[in-house]
Design a protein around this nucleic acid. Structure first.
Length: 508
RNA sequence: GGGCCCGUAGCUCAGCCUGGCAGAGCGGCGGGCUUUUAACCCGUAGGUCCCGGGUUCGAAUCCCGGCGGGCCCGCCA
C-alpha cells in the first residue's frame, strides 16, 4: 500500500507510465468470468497441490500481498468474497508483462487476473495467475486488517472506508436490499401496487413531526419535504388502488440520536376492506419472511449473542394491560391528572394536555424495555392517533398498534379513519393542540378530508421503519450504522491530486 | 435545549492523574526468501500531540476559550 505522500505517489505513477502499465491509460474495461466464492465452491473437490486447466478471470481489490521472493500470494476481494492469487516465478519469467506488473502491485489496488484454478499445497483454492492487469490504483493508504477504522469521525466522514472494511455495516446495507426485495415479492404476490407519492408537499402530514421547508422556484411556493406518504397513499385507495404500497424516504426535521435520523426509509402499505388485525398479520409475514430470506431461519443470533425469534404468530399485548402488569396498578380509568401524577412518581417527564400522550410515556418507560422478541402493542390512546379509527370496543382508544423488536419501535399501523366528519373533527382538535403547546400536531388538510368525502373503503394500513428493522436484526447500535451515508460538518480535505496537478496533461 | 466523555504517526492505542528528550504494535520504505493466510527475518524513515491563549525555567500533560466527534437525558419513528 502506498504511503500518503504525493512525491512517492508521483514517482510510482511516472514509473508505471514508463512501463506502459498506467491504468488510467490502459484500463477501461475488464472481462470478468468468475466470482471468488463461486470458484471456491465449485472447486472444493480439489486435493491440496492439485491443478486444473480451467482458466478464469477475476477482478477486485487486493487485500493482502505476501511476497516470498520466488512466489507471491495475494488476496483479491470482489463483491462475493475473497480468493487467493498466486504468482510463481517460473510463470512470471515467461511473461515480461506479468513480472513488470508484479513489481508495482500494492495492497489496495484494483486488479484483474487471468489464470488457472488450483488448490495450493497448503489447501487454499487459488487462481494461479498468468496475466495481471492493474485496473486502478489506491493512492491513499487504506486502514486494512484487524484494526479497520474505529474512529467514529472517520467512519462517518469516509464512509466508503467503513463500508469497505466493516463487514457488519456492509451486511446491513446489502441486507436492507434483500429485505426490500423479499417484501416487494410478497406484496406483489398479494396484488399490491407499488407507487411513488410526492416528496414535495404543500401540506405535510401522516405523522407528527417538524418538516423541512423549501421552495419551488417555478411556482414561487413554499413546500414541505414529505414526513410520511400516508395521506397520499390513502388518496390512492380512494382512487381505487385498493392494495397499494410505497417504500418511501421520509424527512423529519428533528434531532439526531441512536434511533432517529432526519431522512429514513419506511415501507407503508394500505389494504382496502382490511382492518388493523389484518395489517398485523401482514406485518408479521413481511418481516418474518424477510428475516428468513436473509438468514434462512426465523431465529436470528445477533453479534451480541442475543437471539431474536421471529416465528409467527407474535404476541399482541394491550398497552394498558402491559402497564398494569408492569406496575401492578390499575390505570385504565385514570384521569389525565392522575396519569400525570403517576408519571411524576415514575420519573417520567410528561407535561401534555393529552392523557394519551402521558399514557404512552408511561408505557415506554415501564413496559417497552421488556420487549425483545417481536411484539405488537395494541390499543393506542385515541387522542394521539388522529388518522386512526376509534376502537369498536372503547372509543377512548384507537385500533392502532405498534411493533416493538429488541426495544425498538419498528412498525406502526391501524384501522384507517375513513369517516370525514370525524377526520375533520380530529384535525380541528390538532389545531387547538398546536395553539395550546409547542408540541407537533397534525395540520388541517382540507383536500384529504375532501378525498374522504368521496368515500374511503374500510382500510388497514401499516408503516415499517426499514432502518430500525435493520438495526434490530443486526444489533448495530446506531441508526447511522445502517444508513450508507450520513451528513457530517464541513472539513478541510487535503487531496493528493491537488499537489499532483502536473499529471493532468498526461491524460488529455 | 441540559449533562458526561474523547481528539497523540497512515491505522489501533499508550503516555496526561503526579509537568522534564514524542512512544509501542501494525502499516510504509530498503534488502532477503518458491507454498503463504494479519507470511517471516534484517534494516530504516515517519509527528501542527485538534486550534488559540494562559500558568510555568519548562506544557502532549495543568487552566481558559474555540473547533471536531461520540454517548446519555428531553422531543420526533
Amino acid at each position: 500500500m502506498r504511503p500518503l505522500n504525493p512525491e512517492e505517489t508521483l514517482q510510482k505513477i511516472k514509473a508505471l507510465a514508463e512501463e506502459g502499465l498506467d491504468p488510467y491509460v490502459n484500463a477501461y474495461r475488464y472481462e470478468v468470468t468468475a466470482k471468488a466464492e463461486e470458484l471456491k465452491a465449485k472447486f472444493s473437490y480439489l486435493q491440496p497441490g492439485e491443478e486444473t486447466e480451467h482458466r478464469v478471470s477475476v477482478a477486485g481489490r487486493l487485500w493482502h500481498v505476501r511476497r516470498h521472493g520466488g512466489i507471491t500470494f495475494m488476496d483479491l476481494r470482489d463483491e462475493s468474497g475473497r480468493i487467493q492469487l498466486v504468482v510463481r516465478r517460473d510463470i512470471a519469467e515467461r511473461s515480461e508483462r506479468l513480472s513488470r506488473t508484479l513489481k508495482f502491485l500494492d495492497k489496495g489496488d484494483i486488479v484483474g487476473a487471468k489464470g488457472r484454478v488450483i488448490r495450493t499445497k497448503t489447501g487454499e483454492i487459488s487462481v494461479l495467475a498468468e496475466e495481471i492487469e492493474i485496473l486502478s490504483i489506491a493512492w491513499r493508504p487504506i486502514p486494512f486488517h484487524e484494526f479497520g477504522v474505529k474512529d467514529p469521525e472517520q467512519r462517518y466522514r469516509e464512509r466508503y472506508l467503513d463500508i469497505m472494511l466493516n463487514s457488519r455495516v456492509r451486511g446491513a446495507i446489502v441486507g436492507l436490499y434483500k429485505v426490500e426485495r423479499e417484501m416487494r415479492r410478497i406484496l406483489d404476490e398479494k396484488g399490491f401496487i407499488e407507487v411513488h407519492t410526492p416528496k414535495l408537499q404543500p401540506i405535510y402530514g401522516g405523522a407528527l413531526a417538524k418538516p423541512f421547508v423549501t421552495k419551488i422556484n417555478a411556482l414561487d411556493r413554499t413546500v414541505y419535504l414529505s414526513i410520511a406518504p400516508e395521506t397520499y397513499l390513502k388518496r390512492l385507495v380512494v382512487a381505487g388502488l385498493f392494495k397499494v404500497y410505497e417504500i418511501a424516504v421520509s424527512f423529519r426535521n428533528e434531532d439526531i440520536d441512536a434511533t432517529h435520523y432526519p431522512e429514513f426509509v419506511q415501507l407503508e402499505a394500505y389494504q382496502a376492506f382490511a382492518d388493523w388485525e389484518d395489517m398485523m398479520s401482514l406485518g408479521e409475514e413481511l418481516i418474518a419472511e424477510a428475516v428468513r430470506a436473509l438468514y434462512g431461519s426465523y431465529r436470528v443470533e445477533r453479534e451480541d449473542g442475543t437471539v431474536l425469534d421471529f416465528s409467527r404468530p407474535w404476541p399482541r399485548v394491550n398497552m394498558v394491560e402491559a402497564i398494569e402488569e408492569a406496575l401492578k396498578t390499575r390505570v385504565r380509568d385514570m384521569s389525565r391528572e392522575e396519569l400525570e401524577e403517576l408519571a411524576g412518581r415514575l420519573g417520567v417527564e410528561a407535561r401534555d394536555p393529552r392523557a394519551g400522550k402521558i399514557m404512552e410515556k408511561i408505557f415506554e418507560k415501564v413496559a417497552m424495555p421488556r420487549l425483545r422478541n417481536p411484539t405488537f402493542v395494541t390499543m393506542f390512546p385515541r387522542d394521539i392517533s388522529p388518522l386512526a379509527r376509534p376502537s369498536r370496543q372503547d372509543p377512548r382508544f384507537a385500533e392502532r398498534f405498534e411493533l416493538y423488536i429488541a426495544g425498538l419501535e419498528v412498525a406502526n399501523g391501524y384501522s384507517e379513519l375513513n369517516n370525514p366528519v370525524l377526520q375533520y373533527y380530529f384535525f380541528k382538535e390538532e389545531e387547538e393542540l398546536r395553539k395550546a403547546l409547542e408540541a407537533e400536531s397534525h395540520p388541517m388538510d382540507r383536500d384529504y378530508v375532501r378525498a374522504l368525502e368521496y368515500g374511503l373503503p374500510p382500510t388497514g394500513g401499516i408503516g415499517i421503519g426499514l432502518y430500525r428493522l435493520m438495526m434490530a436484526i443486526t444489533g448495530l447500535p446506531s441508526i447511522k450504522d445502517v444508513i450508507p451515508f450520513t451528513i457530517t460538518s464541513p472539513e478541510n480535505i487535503e487531496l493528493v491530486s491537488e499537489s499532483l496537478q502536473e499529471l493532468a496533461h498526461r491524460y488529455l
